[in-house]
Amino acid sequence: MELFVDILLSGVAQGMVFAAIALGLGLVSRATGIVNFAQGAMGMFTTFIAFSLLSHGVGYWPAFVAALALGAVLGAAVERTLIRPLQGKPALNPVIVTIGLLIVLEGVAGSIWGNVARGFPAAFSQRGLVIGRTRVAFSHFDVFLVCAVVVLVVAIVALFRWTNLGLRMRAAAFSPEVSRLLGVRVGRLFTLAWALACAAGSLAGLLVAPLSSFSPYYMDLNLVYGFTAAVLGGLLSPVGALAGGLVTGLSIAFVGGYVGPDLQPIAALALLLLVLMVRPQGLFGTSEVRRV
């Protein structure tokens, strides 16, 4: 029973990280119809910058905020310089470009910070909380992690649902040509979507770094899980991303706990295949044709 509860709790914490990655993937996919394979690597890179700041004596929270802001800047810059020129080109081009960016970012990070695994500090204690008389596998840091992602999801939902900016962003994503004819500056909104997505990726990177062995490659597997979560959630809604993240997190936590951690990536891919075969629009998606 204790094992079950521990697995459940660690699955929720992991799932939140995947939800943040899935949210970023969904924002970009919805706006520009592209799967950003560099989503994880961009988060990795900004987390390494936070790591450098920390090792130069900057406090945790300033470094945290700086990494989020840098994530937004990086996302906007990538959209403007690498993605925008590919408009109207074959759909494979952005796939190749984002995979290339993933490789470049990992290579550059490796040459700056070294290809070694290290530790990344957490904002709060990582010792399990004591509930009743038992210590569970859920720490103060996990509480922070869950809250941070829930706040992110609520903020994005509120942006889309209740603000004029969100209405413009939805219109631009669904119908860019009509939006432009109404005077909406669609290009800027796509840049903004990339900025938000990559800030979400940075958040995921910062949150999962203390739980991983922190190297330039630590986001690779998380991107696979985040991608599974995004497909599960239907790629369109932030709430879908959250649900997809939780299902993926719990699935791989239970496979890891009861079967073996080696099988976790395979379990995620099996889950991905299952969803694509049974319900390709995702748990929350509508049955419109996918662009990617």
Partner: peptide, 9 residues
């Protein structure tokens, strides 16, 4: 929402 979108500019 369609109509509001027209008024933004």
């Amino acid at each position: 929402e369609n109509l509001r979108l027209g008024t933004f500019v």
